[in-house]
Each structure stands twice: as structure tokens, then as C-alpha cells.
Simulated scan of single mutants.
Amino acid sequence: MAVRQDTIWERFLSPVVRLLIDEEGLRRYADSIDWEKESDRFRREDVIMPPYYISQNFHGITGGYLKSSAAVTYDPITQYVLPPNETIVRQALIDAIKVQPRRILDLGCGTGSTTLMLKQAFPEAEVIGLDLSPYMLVRAEDKARTAGLDIVWRHGNAEKTGFSDASFDLVTASLLFHETPNAVSQTILRESFRLLVVGGQVLILDGNQKTLRQLDWLNDVFEEPYIREYAAGNIDASMGAAGFEAVRTQDVWWTNQVTSGVKPIPAKDTTIQKNVTRYSVTSRDNTIDNNDLEGLESPAFGVMA
């Protein structure tokens, strides 16, 4: 049996990050919630966990995201791995929105950091965050409650959401595609196409594929089983194959990218065309609020909640 090798993160980076975190704060927060009881409120029996999701470790977390410790520690990890700043990177997705959405679906929402920013940007819109992990949804709901934001959290699979055709104006996914095989990502894009109204927009925020291909050592920093497959792919081409048009990828610094696509509008339907207007950035406070848990350790540090 092969022996698992420590990642660069575990050997070199996590000891440095541990100096910046509040481990006691992590434990207090983790102990303050009955995770099984709270996660049961979200857990849906009709949601079947896909093999790719339950058979791999993510971010060095044994068992992936289907545990409370993953939900508690996701934010502390992410704040240190999205240079130059997590809020700036996630804001790039918000700034790329070109529609005025009434309904928004955030796929693979995790702990809801981008979902909260979407609701802040469009307070009148119905915003739904969907994720395979009910534990992540518990954390997301807690953050939304603290921020005073009304967001719907739903347990579900981005490949087959169960929502009706043409029921959303905007579909987003942040930091999801590098954690799925390319075939699954393609299925998610086809599902996004089905869910969008004509003229609706899809936005994918994730790692910069060009950078990942050129700097292969970055793929060894974390335990990400599908990141090399993601790096070798092309989101623009995948969107085109799913039927999207006006596909455009914008670099977000050198580490990330935002790709936008639009569900084609029939040439004869000018009413819809008039409703597709460019989103203008307004002054707002989009600082990600992680309930003052700025520094919490990860199972990758060897400390489990």
C-alpha cells in the first residue's frame, strides 16, 4: 500500500500560518454548535453523494468536506491562499456581473463567502447557495445570520440541482471547478445553461489555468486531487461546448481567473436584450465577515475540531 506523502503545505507553510491563528477561538466556536443536529436541518435524503466527492481528501482534510471540522476551518485556510486578498479575489466575480438579477444561484457555495457578497450587491434579489456538504451550509447560515442577510441555503448537487428550467438570471461558482473532474465540470455548465433564462449569465471564479500549467509546483501545495486535470483544461472551451456565448476570461492577479458566459438570446427577442445591462460597481462594504474567526486552524495543521 502506497504511503501518502506530506504536501508542501503540511511540511512548510502550515507551521507559519499556525503562528497567525487563534486555535483556542477555533475550539470554542466548534464546541458552540451541535453540528449533527444543525446539519440534519439541511440534509436531504434525495441528494446522492457522487463518488468523486466522497472518495478523495480535499485541502489535506481526510474525508473531505463531509465533516464539521472542514466547515469550521475552511475560511481560515482560504484567507491565506487567495493573494493578494480573499475579498479582492471574490469581488472580481461581483464586478464581472453584467445582468440585473432577480434570482441568483451560487453553486458549490461552501461557507457562503461569495454568496454573502452576492446578496450584499443585490439586496432585492433572491439568492440561493447550494452545496453538497450540509456542514458547510451550517457555517454559511451562521455567517449570513451574523451579517443580517436573508439567503436560502440548500443541500444539493450542482450537476443536478432539481430547480426548474430557466429559473435564474445569474448562476455562479467560486473555487469549485478545480475540485471536480473535468467531466463533472462540464455537466455543471450544462446544468447552469438549463437553469438560466435566455440572456442570463454564468460566472466561474477559480484558479488561473495558465498559471497552474506554467508553475506545476503550485499544484503540490495542497492536496487537491483534480487540480492538474483542471489546469490542463480550458474553461472558455468548456463554456462554448455547453452552449454559452460571449465567453470571456479575465485574469485576477496571477493566481485566479473569472470566466463569464451568456445564454444566447434569440435574435427576434429584443425585450430580453434590453434587460441585459452592464452591472455598475457601487460603493459598498463587501468585506468578508467570518464571525471574527480570522484565524482558525485546519485539520491540515493536525488539529481536528
Rank of each mutant, 00 (worst) to 15 (best):
T114D: 01
L13K: 04
R284P: 02
G243E: 05
D95F: 00
I61H: 02
P181K: 10
Y53K: 04
R228I: 00
T255G: 15
S283M: 11
I61D: 04
L170Q: 02
V3S: 13
I94E: 06
G162W: 05
W253T: 10
G261E: 04
E24K: 08
P83I: 00
E141S: 12
E86V: 03
E159G: 11
A246S: 09
T277P: 09
D22A: 05
W35A: 06
W153D: 06
S174R: 00
V152M: 13
I21Y: 13
G63D: 02
L170Y: 03
E23W: 01
I151F: 00
V127M: 02
R154E: 13
A140C: 14
D251G: 00
E23S: 04
V276A: 05
V247P: 08
L149C: 05
F177S: 11
G240E: 09
F12Q: 08
D169Y: 10
G162L: 06
A232P: 10
E86D: 01
P101T: 05
A231I: 13
T114L: 15
V152T: 15
Q201H: 09
Q91Y: 13
L93H: 00
E191Q: 09
L215N: 08
T115K: 01
F163C: 13
R103Q: 15
D22E: 11
A70S: 14
Y279S: 11
G156D: 06
Q209N: 10
F244D: 01
M304I: 09
F168L: 04
W9D: 13
V127P: 04
D285M: 03
A71H: 10
S238E: 10
R18G: 11
F163Y: 14
R248G: 09
A140Q: 13
V184C: 04
A305C: 15
P299N: 02
G233P: 03
L137G: 14
T115V: 08
D289L: 01
T87R: 08
E10Q: 05
A125Q: 03
Q186T: 08
Q100I: 15
I235H: 00
